[in-house]
Amino acid sequence: MNDETQNLIWEWTGYNEVQSRTQTRQSPDSDQVEVAIRAIGICGTDLHIMSGHAEFGKPPLPLGHELAGVVVRIGNAVTRWRIGDRVCIDPLIGCGTCEACLSGNKHRCPDAGEIGLHFPGGWQQYMLVPQLNLYRLPDSVSFEEASQAETLHCCLGGIDKLEIRLGMDATVIGDGPTGLYYVQLLKTAGAGRVTLIGKRASRLELGRLLGADETVNLSPSFSNDIPAMESQDIVIDAAGTEASLQMGIELLKRGSQLLLFGLPGAPISVDIQTVVMKELKLLGTTNAPHVWPRVLKMMATGNVKVKPLITHHFRFEQLVEAVEFACNQSDEIIKIIVHNDPIEEAKP
């Protein structure tokens, strides 16, 4: 059998286990597109699923929801895509018929699920995707950058929920990839002084390069002072711990806004009395279907920089090593990209 008919898949098979297998490529349904995956981001959510700390899909399942690639086959009812189109993938799939889906809010569909979390994901050479879940890449955006559109779109959706006025003081708690994106988005949205709080010196240094006016290292070996209590107009909790939530509540002025983005591994306590007495506005945020086109424009114009966050590269056949490296070298990594093509640089 011709190798081109086969699809190599990496599957999560059990607790922190990944195994490879092959299967025959299936033809797209009438409204599906087959995408040859070119770049895959290794996300913290993937690691949480594998270790049993996130209740999404069940093994065996190929994970992977940060994806970009090339259209290689199209269904007979597909009109908006052609073979050779460069695309990124929106992993969220709604039922398509409920009130939420029909109003453009498929992330609120009670039956929604995500590629790589609930449905087979992009840890494979080829995958079938509904045609409505693709977005065309600008020529100046590389596959590796485009794989990060999924993460960035979640962050931009959170920014849209905030009422940001020019000059507001804002703090981001958490120095992971999303915290670094939030720093950039706050500055782009007109926030005044932006502070990034975290525990890793290299990431905090990058945060300054990306626009943070001040950084605070909470590691015991550092003595930086956090902003004064009740001094901030906006706090974004990108860490998702009980300590980060409490810090956010304490930092905010009365009547201010706390955006909750980081996901705790288990239920945590909240100081509701202080929230009520300070009249704080707590906002949760996840997916944001409306913002995908804006994300790609921001990448193309350089309003948000992705490449500085990409610290490590692996080949597709090294995916197990990439996952192991992500698990064991978390302080050294910001973002790992797995490539299924020669590493592509963005055009100038």
Rank of each mutant, 00 (worst) to 15 (best):
L152A: 14
A146F: 01
L63I: 12
P293Y: 04
W81K: 07
A239C: 13
Q19V: 08
D3I: 11
L309Q: 12
G94K: 08
L204H: 01
I343V: 11
I42H: 03
L263P: 02
N287K: 02
P267G: 05
Q273F: 12
G248I: 12
I159K: 04
R38Y: 09
E344I: 10
R38G: 11
T24E: 12
I272C: 13
G96C: 08
L134M: 05
I115P: 07
I74D: 00
Q6G: 05
E17D: 14
E11A: 10
H118M: 05
V18R: 00
Y182D: 11
I268L: 05
T151W: 00
V71G: 06
A300R: 03
E332T: 14
N340L: 06
D233C: 02
N2L: 03
K161I: 06
N340P: 03
M229Q: 14
E332F: 02
G157F: 04
A346D: 07
G57I: 15
A146R: 00
M277P: 00
L283H: 06
V70I: 15
P59F: 11
E55G: 05
I49E: 01
M247E: 06
R86T: 11
I40K: 00
T215V: 15
D225S: 15
C154R: 10
I234R: 01
I334N: 14
H53V: 02
I37N: 00
T188D: 14
A239N: 08
S330K: 13
V70S: 02
P59L: 03
L134G: 07
F143M: 09
V291C: 03
F316G: 10
I234E: 05
H290M: 09
G113A: 08
M299W: 10
L134S: 03
I226K: 04
E55F: 09
R86K: 05
R254P: 02
E345S: 13
K335W: 02
H65P: 09
L296W: 06
R208G: 04
H290T: 13
R200H: 13
V275I: 14
S202H: 14
L166C: 10
I74W: 02
V35C: 09
D233Y: 04
F325M: 12
Y182T: 06
G64R: 00
I337T: 11
S223N: 13
G52Y: 05
N340K: 00
P28R: 02
P120L: 00
T311H: 01
M299T: 13
N2C: 07
V87F: 00
L251M: 12
F314D: 07
